[in-house]
Computed example of a mutant assay.
Amino acid sequence: MDGVFKAIAGDLGARYMDFRPEHGHQTDLDRGPFILFSYDSDFGNFASLLDREDVKILHLIRDPRDVVISAMHYHKASRESWLHEPIPGYDNLTYQRALQNLPTKFEQYLFEMDNSSASTLRDMERWRYGRANCFEARYEDLRRDEELVTWQRIMTFLGLDAEEQALGSRRFWQNSLFGGLSRLGNKHVRSGAIAQWRREFTPELADAFLKRFPNALQTLGYETNDAWVHELQQPAAPSMFSALRGLAAHHWEGLAGLIRSPSKF
């Protein structure tokens, strides 16, 4: 969305402002058209801006379970500066290093749920839904919107005329995973798939998620109850053959290590 609307702003001659780095500087918003972009659902002291009659909003959410999955993998590898700054309470470790040091994906997901993703999900829950001037969209719908049906509805809602919509459609296609945005070599895209939680979430992880965010899925309309937990597959237990094969491999790796080790005599 950042890439889409930054390009649209350029096409239309509108000011483009990123809320995070320009926080506190959005004071002159009565001078011509503008696009104000925020990565989360919290506009802080500028929340009143959302109630202006001349302002239209596109609010985009994603399945909270996939938010956690995507964020964890992104934070393990991203070069964003905040991930490499020491955080209080973690022995001078950075967020990324603290995450990487955890030995299992289960623990890494828990860390993500207790930290960065926690604020993201709570902001999504606290958002005031039902605003007349807001189009509520879902990542899942846009990810499958190859015919640009949902995107056309969004552009119409935002007040773009036919010529502007043609420009907007081209920009959306250029920045979509089914269009011009390749996953290969893209630092922001690992998968982009919908419902990754079905293969990543175990019953144990689902229980941990529900303890932290008991109402998120119902509030956001992704589930009507907690029955989805019982549909998850238990991790497959290793067969006797694979267990023996793993033991044998470990044994031979140990012998190989002894052979490769220099003599102490």
Rank of each mutant, 00 (worst) to 15 (best):
L12G: 01
Q152K: 13
G192H: 02
S169N: 10
L50M: 11
A14P: 01
P88H: 08
V229I: 04
P64F: 00
L160Q: 02
F43K: 02
V189D: 02
T27S: 11
A256M: 12
R198K: 13
E80N: 08
E200S: 09
D28M: 12
R79F: 11
H25A: 11
R170M: 13
A243R: 15
G168Q: 07
E146P: 01
K56Q: 11
F172K: 12
P262W: 04
Q96Y: 00
D51L: 09
G185I: 05
N186C: 04
T94M: 05
T202C: 00
M124D: 10
L58N: 04
R212F: 07
I8D: 00
R126V: 06
D28Y: 14
L83A: 08
G24A: 07
N175Q: 15
G159S: 02
A227W: 03
G185D: 03
D63I: 05
E136F: 08
W173K: 14
L247M: 15
G130S: 12
S117Y: 00
I87V: 10
T94R: 05
I69K: 02
Y129D: 06
V229S: 01
F111K: 02
G192Q: 01
W151L: 07
N133Q: 00
A227P: 03
Y90D: 13
C134P: 11
D63T: 01
E147F: 12
D30Y: 05
D40W: 08
L110Y: 05
N175I: 09
A118F: 15
G246C: 06
L184P: 01
L50S: 09
H84T: 04
P203N: 04
L210A: 04
Y74S: 04
T120W: 05
V229L: 01
H59L: 06
T104Y: 06
L181H: 10
A193F: 00
G180N: 06
I154H: 06
A193M: 03
R212E: 01
K6G: 06
F34N: 01
W173N: 09
I57V: 08
L93M: 15
D40I: 10
L255V: 14
E146I: 10
S78W: 08
G3L: 07
L210D: 02
Q100L: 13
F19K: 10
N215T: 15
S263E: 12
F172D: 09
R170W: 09
N92E: 05
D161V: 08
F157S: 05
C134V: 10
G3F: 04
K76V: 08
W151S: 09
V4Q: 05
F34W: 15
D66P: 05
R52E: 07
A9H: 08
E85G: 07
E107M: 11
R126T: 03
E147S: 15
S119N: 15
N215M: 14
L60F: 10
D91Y: 13
R143G: 00
E223A: 07
R65H: 01
